[in-house]
């Protein structure tokens, strides 16, 4: 990298969109120079409010994000968006189409939208999502909205990234709601029944309510909001529900410690750290495996058992550190 990382970080933090976008690219591509810049940006993060949006494919997540951008902009807030779509496991390529719904904000200087592909990462986000969120946070975006892949079941990663997780469902899913409830109700801080212009919205709300009831009375309260994202109906109620969630969080379970750190924030830091360690170890593992092809052959030929081989690889990895 030609530039001094500190100087580049400074430029990005003071709003250089082009430099920021390129850094995001380098983070996504795992370019070595990007980490040096992140080290300078990290102290500037932690100010923005990170909001996660997840839910079934086509439920209207991007349209909800689009409507929320309008609302937050009207309130004078600057908004960053990270929208994740799946990478095809067959081609390695991806069509990143979430942006289509948000393009009316493309030239608004108070809005920065970035699309990412999962690149094989599981959990509904890309490996780089947390880092890209951090860049937007360091740039001073007041709200950073993360839209997960619409995989339906295990977009649980959003919980570790976001301060508030909004789960978007639609009417008429019937049994599908049953199927997703386990994963999704557990992570929802706010539930949305979008496409409420369609038949069955009342029933969807009732079903979700009944499922929330089953969680017992000491479970955290979860509000259910009806929206029609295409017209913006219900979006202000959604924003209020999100605000109320934040207030509850701050006043109830999420009491800051002596250093001013809330448990939720600490959990996020731990998740980020864990993710980075796992990622480094995974890459070290791939490297160790590539360096010792004979071990793989031996395990395949049953001349070495996989446990012994695994121990040996772990020794090789830790010795090389």
């Amino acid at each position: 990298m030609a530039n001094d990382p500190a100087e580049l970080a400074e430029r990005i933090a003071s709003g250089d969109v082009r430099a920021a976008a390129r850094l995001m690219r380098d983070l996504d591509d795992i370019r070595p120079g990007a980490i040096a810049v992140m080290k300078h940006l990290y102290p500037r993060t932690g100010r923005g409010f990170v909001l996660g949006i997840t839910g079934n494919p086509g439920a209207g997540k991007s349209t909800v994000v689009d409507a929320l951008i309008s609302l937050y902009r009207a309130a004078g807030k600057r908004v960053g968006v990270v929208a994740v779509d799946p990478t095809s496991p067959f081609s390695g390529g991806a069509i990143l189409g979430d942006r289509i719904r948000m393009q009316r904000h493309a030239t608004d200087e108070g809005v920065f939208i970035r699309s990412l592909a999962t690149r094989g990462h599981l959990g509904g986000l890309s490996r780089s999502t947390g880092e890209v969120v951090a860049v937007l946070d360091a740039m001073g975006y007041d709200v950073v909205i993360v839209e997960t892949v619409g995989v339906g079941q295990d977009e649980v990663d959003v919980v570790s990234q976001a301060e508030c997780a909004v789960v978007v469902t639609v009417p008429g899913m019937g049994d599908e709601i049953q199927a997703i409830k386990a994963g999704i109700l557990e992570i929802a801080d706010v539930l949305v029944v979008n496409k409420s212009d369609r038949e069955g919205a009342d029933r969807a709300v009732r079903d979700l309510f009944a499922m929330l009831e089953l969680r017992g009375h000491d479970a955290a309260p979860v509000e259910i909001v009806r929206t029609v994202a295409t017209s913006g109906k219900g979006i202000d109620e959604l924003a209020h529900a999100i605000d109320r969630f934040r207030e509850r969080g701050i006043h109830a379970s999420d009491v800051p410690n002596a250093g001013g750190i809330t448990p939720r924030r600490r959990r996020r830091a731990q998740a980020t750290l864990r993710e980075l360690v796992v990622d480094r170890l995974r890459r070290a593992t791939d490297g160790a495996l590539a360096a010792r092809p004979e071990l793989v052959d031996e395990v395949a030929a049953r001349t070495t058992d996989p446990y012994t081989a695994a121990d040996e690889l772990v020794r090789a990895i830790t010795a090389s550190k």
Partner: peptide, 18 residues
């Protein structure tokens, strides 16, 4: 995308600025 590239598709009716 089938050739392995990441394609951002922005849809119809875009101004050059967008």
């Amino acid at each position: 995308s089938d050739a392995g590239y990441e394609v951002v598709y922005t849809g119809l009716h875009q101004t050059p600025e967008m």
